[in-house]
Simulated scan of single mutants.
Amino acid sequence: MPRESAARLWVLIRHNVLLMAREPGPVLSRMILPLAFVTLLRPLYTAGQGESTGTEQAVVGTLVTFSLLALGICGGAILTERLGRTWDRLRGTALHPAELLLGKAVPAFAVLLAQQVLIVGFAVCAFGLRVPHLLLLSAVLLSWSCTLLGLGTLLGVLVRSLGALSAAYDIGGMLLSSVGGALVPLAALPAWVAAVAPVSPGYWAAHGMRAALAGDAYAVAESCGTLLGVALVCGTVASVRLRGRGGRLVAL
């Protein structure tokens, strides 16, 4: 990366970190609520599936669901700029669309990854979750964070209001996690749900996390490849959209 581009990117990242720090509410809620959720949900799973399997199900389901709900952090960072018309000013500078997206993406990526590490760490310390294959789990968490970042960025570029963004990540997040078998095992759901589940990125995240905890390297590689593919497609579409007038909000 040329020095000038790196310098511009660093300024954008620092600026976006400061913006996020001034409004910490959304970030804190996405950090604290999952811990309460997994604590309340775990007894339900352990009663039917046993201590180890139930704890794993509670952690995976909570992690996938709440990380999908955190899409608003990524999309909101972009949409707020668009609504404030500061996005057009940034587009009018020498900044490349990829630099604009990266400047927003890096702080959001750090938040998403921190959320997942916090949930797993809490489960390890509080409930004795076993993580014998840390590298495999780390690969899944990193790939899933990239997918979330791509989805959130695409939402931030496509939607035209905060209400639409909220509906997209609330409804979409719950659907993707539920259909993907994060909250309820696919074996307990209707057959048609299991048939369509692989369409959901949440399925591959949950599948990859369970495989990582079990030490199944092949399934982890398959899940990570799929998640990174989704991230690449979403990021590419968002970047192309920003090259034209797609990122602008034009008054009707």
Rank of each mutant, 00 (worst) to 15 (best):
P2V: 07
S5T: 15
H15D: 05
N16M: 11
V17K: 10
V17D: 04
L18N: 03
A21G: 01
A21V: 10
P24Q: 11
P24K: 11
L33D: 11
P34G: 15
A36N: 14
A36Q: 06
L40R: 07
L40E: 12
Y45D: 08
G54M: 05
V59L: 13
T62G: 12
V64M: 02
G72D: 01
G76T: 11
T80K: 12
T93Y: 10
L95W: 03
L101V: 00
A105Q: 00
A108F: 01
A108C: 07
A110Y: 05
Q115I: 00
Q116D: 04
L118E: 11
G128P: 06
P132D: 02
L135I: 05
L136I: 01
S145P: 09
G150K: 01
G150H: 01
T153V: 00
R160T: 12
S166Y: 06
S177M: 14
S177D: 10
G181R: 15
A182T: 15
L186V: 03
L189N: 08
W192V: 08
V193Y: 02
V193F: 04
A197K: 10
A197R: 09
A205R: 06
A206H: 09
G208M: 00
R210E: 04
R210F: 07
G215H: 06
A217C: 01
Y218P: 02
Y218N: 03
A221Y: 08
T226A: 07
L228K: 12
A231C: 06
V233W: 08
A238T: 00
L242Y: 00
G246W: 03
G247Q: 01
V250G: 04
L252P: 13
